[in-house]
Design a binder for these strands. Structure first.
Length: 276
DNA sequence: ATATTCCCCTGGAAGC
DNA sequence: TGCTTCCAGGGGAATA
């Protein structure tokens, strides 16, 4: 589910309601997530602390906690982090529940348990093993632009679609938005990354940014279970041109959208509009 | 170093 | 109605 626009949507919807609140308690009902939840770390670093800010790095939500700790939440494929009223009945897969100062709850619900929750000292953020190798933020205008994408791709043999999804290069772009950005740019998903010309790199970089920003504007894409911090679905699905549209008409020509598998993931593209 | 393949899990949809 | 198979937004580890 959650790629950059969805994670950013969760961040923005939680921000006004959660920042400044004290975490009264943390209840871990299921510690077996992507990595085992360190309950002691949550007790020490998050419980009884005030939430100072919520940042985003790649697909991680980073909660700055009073006392100099950071809590990193990753939503994996089916993770939800949303506010609930006090004493709402616990649902299946409500794995971690944070009770806030006003009595409301912040709940981490994740059917597939590919998500994760970590807490560590802020000083360790720069060297955190799962954060340290992350690539550029596509919405950072200084770091990500056509020139940068062109330079990055010069020695990359892999298909451009897989390149875009490689978090060591560019973060936040998952299967949906890689497909959509390539469609918008008219670039064939199987083009070896190093063969991307400079003008096409310019165009593709713009399309990546525009697609992500448009999706954020719609509150993200809800295919099945994505919800924001207020429990609301996103509406970018309506605007998808390629992803999930196998066999349907291309919106730009008379051909049909095709599905292929690249690196084990479905890729949707138009054989006519997207050139090698 | 780089490129696929497998795997962690649950559940919804499609096929029989 | 029920059983089986396939597929899914991520990403780390094992494997070629």
């Amino acid at each position: 589910m959650p790629e950059l626009p969805e994670v950013e949507t969760v961040r923005r919807t939680l921000l006004p309601h959660v920042v400044g609140q004290r975490v009264q308690s943390v209840a871990v009902h299921q510690p077996k997530l992507r990595w085992p939840v360190d309950i002691a770390a949550l007790e020490v670093r998050v419980a009884h602390k005030t939430i100072g800010d919520i940042r985003r790095r790649a697909k991680y939500l980073l909660f700055d906690m009073e006392g100099g700790s950071v809590m990193a939440v990753h939503l994996g494929m089916t993770g939800q982090l949303s506010r609930m009223q006090a004493h709402t009945t616990r649902r299946t897969h409500d794995h971690v529940v944070f009770t806030l100062g006003d009595g409301s709850e912040l709940r981490f619900n994740d059917a597939r348990r590919f998500g994760s929750i970590d807490a560590f000292d802020k000083a360790a953020e720069e060297t955190h093993p799962r954060l340290v190798h992350l690539g550029v933020e596509p919405l950072d205008q200084d770091a990500f632009h056509g020139e940068a994408l062109y330079a990055m791709t010069r020695r990359a043999q892999k298909p451009i679609k897989n390149f875009l999804m490689d978090a060591q290069r560019v973060v936040g772009v998952g299967n949906i938005y890689a497909c959509e950005a390539l469609f918008a740019a008219g670039v064939h998903p199987n083009l070896p990354a190093h063969k991307l010309s400079r003008p096409r790199a310019e165009r593709l970089a713009r399309c990546v940014v525009d697609t992500l920003e448009a999706a954020i504007g719609q509150g993200g894409t809800t295919l099945r279970d994505f919800v924001d911090g207020d429990g609301q679905a996103g509406y970018f699905k309506v605007h998808l041109h390629a992803y999930g549209r196998e066999g349907e008409d291309c919106n730009q020509c008379t051909r049909l959208i095709r599905r292929v598998v690249q690196a084990g993931r479905s890729t949707f593209y138009c054989v006519q509009c997207q050139k090698r």
